Computed example of a mutant assay.
Amino acid sequence: MIMYDRDFGISIFQNFRGYDSLLDDAEWLLERTHCKSRGFLIRVVMKGKKRGLWIGEYLYGKKGIVRQELIFQGYAENISRVILEYAGGRISEENLLRRIRIENLRELDSKVIRDFKYYYCPSNRFLHECPHVNDVYSRLVKKYGGEKWVPYSLLALEMEKIEPCKDVIICPLVASNMFERVLNLNRALKTRRIGEIRFVTPDFVKII
């Protein structure tokens, strides 16, 4: 069984021994898992010779599963096959996590997954895949680049123009704290090795 949690990310539960009831199994697991806020669980299921997915949603402050779905058609077959390959030791955990990212799961015909949002953009996704980082950097270089010393607050105000991804509640680039916004952008730029925002005084920066 695999858990996708808004605050704690993805957790994999192996060698799970249940009660032969999808709902009871999920609720038993939720009762014993403390690192959770809201999200959903997925599990491979069989219907005749068809493989599919059971998806169960849980909410903070609510007891048990509040919504569940069974999906057999389309992309569910691919995801279930990948999970079984991992369970059988044929692919690594790293490979599994790459192939069952929430972005991939959105191809499923699942209202639970479509409604799911991260509270804060996952660090790895933000640092390596955020579609806004390069665009913001290009815009800032064009406007404030070169040898100019610029108040970091101006950069933060420029970043407010970003439209956050629909599956994230808080985007690191539009965090409420202006200083934090600039630090987050700089962290992503340095990770991607495309530039840097260097503080030359406590209040002024230079875009490199």
Rank of each mutant, 00 (worst) to 15 (best):
L96F: 04
R6H: 09
G145A: 03
R181D: 07
G48N: 11
I169R: 15
I208A: 00
M46W: 14
V136S: 10
V45W: 02
I113N: 04
V44Y: 06
S138F: 10
D25Q: 08
M1K: 01
E129S: 14
V141I: 15
V168T: 09
E147V: 08
R32A: 07
M1T: 08
R51P: 02
I10V: 15
I102T: 01
E107C: 03
N95Y: 14
I10W: 09
H128I: 11
E147Y: 12
H128K: 14
G64D: 01
I65Q: 09
R192H: 04
A76S: 10
R125E: 13
I10F: 07
L157F: 13
K142R: 13
I113C: 07
Y86Q: 00
D24V: 14
R193S: 08
Y144W: 11
C171N: 02
E77G: 05
L183W: 04
L127W: 10
R51N: 12
K50D: 14
A26R: 01
C121G: 05
L154Y: 13
V182I: 09
V150M: 05
V136N: 02
I71R: 06
V205N: 00
F179A: 03
Y58I: 04
W54H: 05
Y137G: 04
S176P: 00
F204I: 03
Y60D: 06
M3T: 01
V200H: 01
G61F: 06
I10N: 08
R81P: 08
V45F: 00
M178G: 01
S11A: 14
G89S: 11
Q14L: 15
Y144I: 02
N186T: 00
L22S: 07
H132D: 12
P122Y: 06
F126Q: 01
L108I: 04
N184L: 03
V174S: 10
V200T: 06
K63E: 09
I162H: 07
V44N: 06
A87E: 15
K206V: 13
K148H: 08
R81G: 09
N184H: 12
L155I: 12
R90G: 00
S176D: 03
C171L: 07
D135K: 14
G64S: 01
Y75M: 13
L22R: 11
P122L: 02
S138I: 00
K190W: 00
H128P: 01
V141W: 02
P122W: 03
E57Q: 14
D135H: 10
Q68F: 09
R81C: 09
Y19V: 12
M178N: 07
Q14K: 15
V136D: 02
E196Q: 10
L53Q: 05
R90L: 14
L157K: 13
G145C: 09
R181W: 09
Y144K: 06
N78E: 11
V174R: 08
N184D: 04
A156K: 01
V200A: 07
L185G: 01
N104G: 02
A26H: 04
C165Q: 14
Y58K: 07
D7T: 13
I2V: 12
D25C: 13
H132G: 02
G39K: 06
L185P: 03
G145M: 08
G61Y: 06
C130Q: 06
M46Y: 15
L140F: 07
C121E: 15
R43N: 12
V82H: 04
R51E: 11
R114M: 11
P164R: 11
I12E: 03
R32Q: 07
D20T: 12
I65K: 03
S110L: 10
V200M: 13
M159A: 06
